[in-house]
């Protein structure tokens, strides 16, 4: 088994990385590209701490091999930051509502919520809950996370409004 070259487009930057076919995208992002905001939590696709956006939609980086995503756009939570490292409005909402405690689930939570907001027109709290079921949090009890996401989606212009 030998390494192959893959071109990864992550947060708008291009990276040529040499990987083994069995290298998970999670490990390549975390260990090779130094993206510590993509985190191992279970390796089963259950917990959501390794969530990244693949062409704007959340996926588990622990269930994709790096060789699979050549030519696709990967976004991690760092990719939401402004050029001057400023917080994205959804990150501001999490900050304001105390939507993080230990912070381990936070990047995955934000990415999933962000993609929902991009896709859906002012989703309800129930719809937000449904979207976030795959991002487990053991610290907050979800209430403050939901408050944060609700404020963010409500702050966005409504379609057709």
């Amino acid at each position: 088994m030998s390494k192959v070259s893959v071109n990864l487009s992550v947060n708008g930057s291009q990276h040529e990385v040499w990987v083994f076919p069995n290298d998970l995208l999670l490990d390549v992002l975390h260990d090779e590209l130094g993206l510590a905001d993509v985190r191992y939590g279970c390796g089963e696709g259950v917990c959501g701490t390794c969530t990244v956006q693949l062409d704007g939609e959340p996926v588990s980086a622990c269930l994709l091999f790096a060789v699979q995503v050549t030519g696709r756009e990967i976004t991690t939570v760092r990719g939401l930051l402004g050029e001057d490292d400023s917080l994205h409005p959804i990150q501001e909402c999490f900050l304001r509502h105390g939507g993080a405690q230990c912070g381990f689930c936070t990047p995955g939570m934000i990415l999933t919520a962000h993609s929902l907001a991009e896709r859906a027109n002012r989703p309800s709290r129930a719809e937000i809950r449904y979207e976030l079921v795959g991002n487990l949090c053991r610290c907050t009890g979800y209430t403050k996370i939901l408050d944060a996401v609700e404020e963010y989606v409500d702050s966005r212009p409504s379609e057709g409004a």
Binding site: P58, L63, G134
Partner: peptide
């Protein structure tokens, strides 16, 4: 079926 990540893939 699953969660949004499972359904996306």
């Amino acid at each position: 079926i699953g969660n949004v990540r499972v359904r996306n893939r």
